[in-house]
Design a protein around this nucleic acid. Sequence first.
DNA 1: GTAATTGCAAATACTTTGCCACGTA
DNA 2: TACGTGGCAAAGTATTTGCAATTAC
Lengths: 157, 157
Amino acid sequence: MQDCHHSSRKASADPASVVEECIHHIRGLGMRRTRTLECVLSELAKENMPLTIGELAQRPSLRDQCDPTTIYRLVERLHQAGILRKLGLHERAMFYEIIHKDSHRDYLICNQCGNITDINEACPVETLEKALKEKTGYRNIQHDLVFYGECPRCAEA
Amino acid sequence: MQDCHHSSRKASADPASVVEECIHHIRGLGMRRTRTLECVLSELAKENMPLTIGELAQRPSLRDQCDPTTIYRLVERLHQAGILRKLGLHERAMFYEIIHKDSHRDYLICNQCGNITDINEACPVETLEKALKEKTGYRNIQHDLVFYGECPRCAEA
DNA sequence: GTAATTGCAAATACTTTGCCACGTA
DNA sequence: TACGTGGCAAAGTATTTGCAATTAC
């Protein structure tokens, strides 16, 4: 492991407006607008793909601009606020991405080399998600659907 | 976080025969039958529920009987061999369970308290899984479908 | 005998916590 | 001013690696 190739993903909305929308939501919950908050959301909005805290911390706008601890705390707050989706993907570090219409993707990951591929198929679990909402009373339900297997290249070796 | 309540799960097959089946498979790949291997498989088969390496290492049959490193290495080999399914579940540690007919479950997890619930619904992604197998050439595809949301109890607070 | 496996020690990586200083509203 | 936030240092926890010793076949 580990070269993780995400297939590129088209930006679905203007990053700046996504950021403003998030900040507006957050402000309503009593959180403050800070430089680090703007940078973290901006990087995630521009990337339009899940990133780890480590990856975020490397970005020029954040590197040497703030302590990594701050990013950990901020990202956790954003996740609890329902702004960010958290993804495990079987890596040591967690991945995060902004939740908005069109942000949800399902993945296919190779158990051997760790290669990550987006799946461009209609996600088949919406119906079940609605049923769960009614049966369990859970709110703000998101889901992760990840397929794991052995990719053709690893199968040869 | 973190009291993780898995709902109990009925044993679907005789644990001992599940273990023997796994070992037979493994032997075919050149792996050797060791005490630790037998214990790890036996604990997982009896539990019939995903466990972390840490949890495995605590079991009387393994505690003080072998070094945790051995369990890490063994479990990884079993995963690569397609014997164990690996689950992230947004916890720091990975979970593992034996793959067999009936072992697959989908989960609902509270973002706040981390409570884990099994979903007793037909899993709706088999069709997509088959399609992926054909389109991508991936083999031995497994999937994780996990729903995350805010549970009713946390919603009150 | 040979190759797979193990134990032990140490290193690595990600994340969390405490505490006090600081900045936003 | 007041409370949310940030920096820094240190700790916590999961996982990985190297290497020599051991064990299964």
